[in-house]
């Protein structure tokens, strides 16, 4: 479903990604981890073209992301994305946040979009909040709305960019629960996260990055039991302590 071949990206002389290659099959859940500044967020953002890259090739569902002829908006509408800071649209009610792209991008009618939105809100346990505004919800609730908003587009895969990093510790689990459920239902997912418990529970594979390179790309069993690189061993030793 997602294929990356030797993708490199730099800002001026600063190399952000160096020849990254990987593949994500339908239904796989990939957890991307690594120290900060290692390029994990960028790796996710090049997949739907939010960040341009200079060389290499990314194919999503048969479409080449780097090709100027590709309709990026169309491609992005098929790829759900969830951000660290939720990025709900603050001037719209929760239900309007879920409907706006359905009506403006997929050209669904208001009724169809609303039905879909309400169903998804129910699924993430937030039906009661439909008429509220994002600023009136807790961080965990906002992130669940953001996931529902992405799902409303019927995406073929989902990208998560540190979805729990900006949350109070108490709210992390409510978001991870929604993501776990999604993974169990067979959604194709790429998640940048430091939640190793989540990775152990649902990941099919773990990608470990350091200094813009994919250092490890292995099954979760192999990664957690026996990381090959020294950098990954150090990383795991540090974050698995607590």
């Amino acid at each position: 479903m997602i294929t990356m071949n030797n993708v490199s990206k730099h800002y001026g002389s600063f190399q952000v990604l160096t020849e990254c290659s990987t593949q994500v099959q339908k239904g796989e859940v990939i957890v991307v981890c690594g120290p900060s500044g290692s390029g994990k967020s960028t790796l996710i953002k090049v997949v739907n073209g939010l960040e341009p890259f200079q060389s290499g090739e990314i194919i999503v569902n048969g479409l080449s992301v780097g090709d100027p002829k590709t309709n990026l908006s169309k491609l992005r509408s098929m790829v759900g994305m969830v951000f660290q800071n939720f990025e709900l649209f603050p001037h719209m009610s929760i239900i309007d946040n879920l409907c706006i792209a359905q009506t403006k991008v997929l050209h669904r009618t208001q009724e169809v979009a609303r039905d879909k939105g309400l169903k998804l809100l129910e699924r993430v346990g937030l039906s009661a909040q439909a008429a509220k505004f994002p600023g009136q919800l807790s961080g965990g609730q906002q992130q669940r709305v953001a996931i529902a908003r992405a799902l409303a587009m019927d995406p073929i895969c989902m990208l998560f960019d540190e979805p729990t990093s900006a949350l109070d510790p108490e709210m992390v689990n409510e978001v991870l629960d929604v993501m776990t459920e999604l993974a169990r239902e067979g959604m194709t997912m790429m998640c940048v996260t430091h939640e190793m418990g989540f990775a152990k529970r649902v990941a099919s594979r773990v990608i470990f990055m350091d200094q813009g390179r994919i250092v490890e790309d292995d099954s979760k069993e192999a990664f957690f039991a026996n990381p090959r690189s020294e950098r990954a061993q150090q990383f795991l030793a540090k974050i698995l302590h607590h």
Binding site: K45, N48, R76, M81, F83, Q84, E87, A101, K104, V105
Partner: peptide, 22 residues
């Protein structure tokens, strides 16, 4: 927040729709 523009684009909005609606 810079993420707002990305959020709009990631939903499949064109740049002008992102300005208009987000």
């Amino acid at each position: 927040p810079p993420g707002q523009k990305n959020a709009g684009l990631a939903m499949g909005f064109t740049l002008s729709q992102t300005y208009r609606h987000v």
